[in-house]
Design a protein around this nucleic acid. Structure first.
Length: 255
DNA sequence: ATGGTAGTTTGACTA
């Protein structure tokens, strides 16, 4: 059994106690983190080592940053999207045995009229090209904060969100192009109750009113998706003291 | 209702 998880921690400096507590409770084999907001020199690797996790980080000051913690060490495949010039740390590809695991923090996009939105669509196109080239015939997991709700089931109020960033058609089309390379959304491999989300805005009582979106995804190539036994969102940490605005998502594979 | 809160950083910027 391989148990992998993704969590946008929104500052590892602030969230380290929650992350360590969650790892201790759930004990996934691999946790992919986003928005660590931590330079590699400041990364709290020793705290992860103390609870039995090796960690590889790809961070920067103040913004962005990804990292992968794992029970057994893996090898680094890439720390940036090949062929895409990007000053922002949003990508970390590693190999664990015969599984390649790609941790992504897709740009937020801010607003459909902004330059950041065009950057988001470019970034997603580059990710698609990378997946197409690297091939999903091998066992591949792509997980992280995609900053896109795949369809209206993943949106608390589709009418209010229609056309907005995180939900807009061009973003959803870009996500479908990722699926076209052969990866599948593990959450939708199973019957799921309505109203399950992975992100709730800090503002306006969004959590209390379950005004959320499902934007944190675990995608798996067909050979792994066929062996996926479970995919769930663990909403509990979103209700802890001083939480991230995202909840962790977990998938289990029979491999 | 272009608000609201949080993190980084100490004034904005990002989300």
């Amino acid at each position: 059994m391989l148990r992998v998880a993704t969590w946008n921690v929104n500052s590892l400096r602030v969230r380290l106690p929650q992350v360590l507590a969650w790892l201790g409770d759930v004990e996934p084999d691999i946790l992919a983190m986003q928005e660590t907001k931590t330079q590699d020199l400041d990364f709290p690797a020793a705290a992860f080592a103390e609870i039995g996790y090796a960690v590889v980080c790809n961070g920067q000051k103040t913004y962005n940053g990804v990292a992968i913690a794992s029970r057994t060490p893996g090898s680094i495949l890439a720390t940036a999207l090949p062929g895409y010039d990007d000053t922002q740390r949003r990508f970390l590809a590693m190999r664990f045995g015969d599984v390649q695991l790609i941790d992504v923090y897709v740009p937020n996009g801010e607003d459909v009229a902004s330059d950041k939105y065009r950057y988001k669509l470019e970034w997603l196109a580059a990710l698609r090209d990378f997946l197409a080239r690297s091939g999903t015939g091998a066992k591949t997991i792509v997980l992280g904060d995609f900053n896109i709700a795949p369809d209206d089931r993943d949106v608390h109020d589709p009418a209010a969100w229609q056309g907005q960033v995180l939900v807009s058609d061009p973003e959803r089309t870009a996500l479908k192009r990722l699926f076209d390379t052969g990866v599948q959304d593990c959450f939708r491999l199973f019957d799921q109750p309505a109203g399950l989300y992975s992100w709730w805005d800090y503002r306006a009582g969004a959590l209390h009113r379950n005004h959320g979106l499902r934007i944190d995804l675990i995608l798996a190539s067909a050979n792994l998706a066929a062996r996926c036994r479970q995919c769930r969102i663990d909403a509990a940490p979103r209700r802890w003291e001083r939480p991230s605005d995202h909840a962790p998502v977990l998938a289990e594979f029979d491999v």
